[in-house]
């Protein structure tokens, strides 16, 4: 059932829209909402509170993301505050299906959902090339251009690509 359209609900929706549109600083093809980093936006005593969760422990973008979300809320005319949410922990499963599709279109292979071979030595999860769709790919490096990505290359189309690591 739809909630009655009170001023508060309208404000909450408008604040969410403003915060949700902020692009990720390192992967600008997706927004903080696509990645599931923005958990919620609430209005508390007239202040828009954005609940933001870090991705990786050492993610250097955490502060940049928080500042950008705060700035977006200020631009939309709100008083704003950021609250850092630690639980439940973010995992790549928080990335929305639209977010995954945007990553693929941008040339980054999205994380394989529920992948569980992280402890297997020399274990290889099959990663599909985001350009040609081939599964004939090989890992070049466990660590890629940012902390959240690994580096792969496609044997079919010979293109290198990033894989958004599954955590």
């Amino acid at each position: 059932m739809a909630k009655p359209a009170t001023t508060d609900n309208l404000d909450t929706a408008r604040a969410w829209a403003a915060a949700a549109a902020v692009p990720d600083p390192e992967v600008p093809c997706v927004t903080v909402a696509d990645l599931g980093i923005l958990r919620d936006v609430t209005i508390e005593d007239g202040v828009a509170v954005a609940h933001v969760t870090p991705t990786y422990s050492g993610c250097p973008a955490v502060l940049a993301i928080e500042l950008a979300v705060e700035a977006a809320l200020l631009d939309a005319g709100f008083e704003a505050r950021i609250e850092r949410v630690m639980t439940p922990s973010w995992t790549t499963d928080w990335i929305t299906p639209e977010g995954s599709e945007k990553l693929r279109a941008y040339g980054i292979a999205p994380p394989v959902r529920g992948s569980n071979s992280k402890m297997a030595l020399f274990g290889e999860t099959v990663i599909t090339c985001p350009r040609c769709g081939s599964s004939e790919t090989t890992k070049v490096s466990e660590f890629g251009s940012t902390a959240c990505k690994a580096h792969y290359t496609c044997k079919a189309c010979a293109e290198p690509f990033d894989y958004f690591k599954c955590i």
């Binding site: 422990s57 639980t87 995992t91 030595l121 955590i167």
Partner: peptide, 24 residues
């Protein structure tokens, strides 16, 4: 402890990568 559970949720996955990478 809820805060430690939150820290651990990320750290356990990161450490799994370290074990695999260094083990290899």
């Amino acid at each position: 402890d809820e805060t430690l559970r939150g820290i651990a949720g990320k750290a356990e996955k990161e450490m799994a990568y370290h074990v695999r990478h260094c083990g290899e």
